[in-house]
C-alpha cells in the first residue's frame, strides 16, 4: 500500500460499544480490515459494552440491520490474532468466554496449528497491553 517505509507499529483498536444501536462497532471493524493490508502489529481490545460484539448467536432479524458478527471469524485469516477481552467487563454483564464466538487462527510458526485468538485479561493486564502500543484507535 502507500506506506513503503517498512515501519511496523503496534496498532491497537479499542472497541467499547455494543454491536448494534450505533454504527461504531461496524465501522471500527471496517478500519481493522483495511488496516490489515498495512502489515502492522495489530491488537484488538473489547471492553465495556464492546464485549457484546463478540457474543455468540447474534440475531439481528428483528432489527432489520445486517448481522456482521461472522466477519470477526475472518480476522484470523487477516493475521489478526491478538484479541483481548476485559474480564471485568464480561463479569459485569454476566458473561464468560463460553458466551463468546470462538475466534481462531492458524499459526504458521507451529505447523499451521489452529490456536485461540481470544485472550481474557484483567483491567490491569489490559492497561499494561495498552501501555505497549504505538497507536491506539478508540471506537
Amino acid at each position: 500500500m502507500s506506506d513503503k517505509g517498512g515501519t511496523v507499529k503496534k496498532l491497537m483498536y479499542i472497541n467499547r460499544k455494543a454491536p448494534y444501536g450505533t454504527i461504531y462497532a461496524l465501522e471500527s471493524l471496517e478500519v481493522v480490515l483495511i488496516g490489515a493490508a498495512f502489515d502492522q502489529n495489530i491488537s484488538l481490545a473489547f471492553i465495556d459494552d464492546g464485549v457484546y460484539q463478540l457474543a455468540k448467536g447474534q440475531n439481528t432479524e428483528a432489527l432489520g440491520v445486517k448481522n456482521f458478527s461472522p466477519t470477526y471469524k475472518a480476522l484470523g485469516d487477516y493475521d489478526i490474532n491478538k484479541i483481548y477481552v476485559e474480564k471485568e467487563s464480561l463479569q459485569a454483564r454476566g458473561l464468560n468466554q463460553d458466551d463468546l464466538m470462538a475466534l481462531t487462527y492458524e499459526d504458521e510458526d507451529d505447523d499451521w496449528a489452529e490456536k485461540n485468538s481470544i485472550h481474557i485479561v484483567s483491567t490491569k493486564e489490559m492497561s499494561d497491553i495498552l501501555e505497549q502500543q504505538d497507536v491506539v484507535f478508540s471506537f
Binding site: M1, S2, D3, T7, E30, I34, A37, F38, Q40, F137
Partner: peptide, 12 residues
Amino acid sequence: SGLGQLIEASIL
C-alpha cells in the same frame, strides 16, 4: 479518500 489514509496517518 479511503480508510487507508487513516492507517497511513497513524503510521507516519
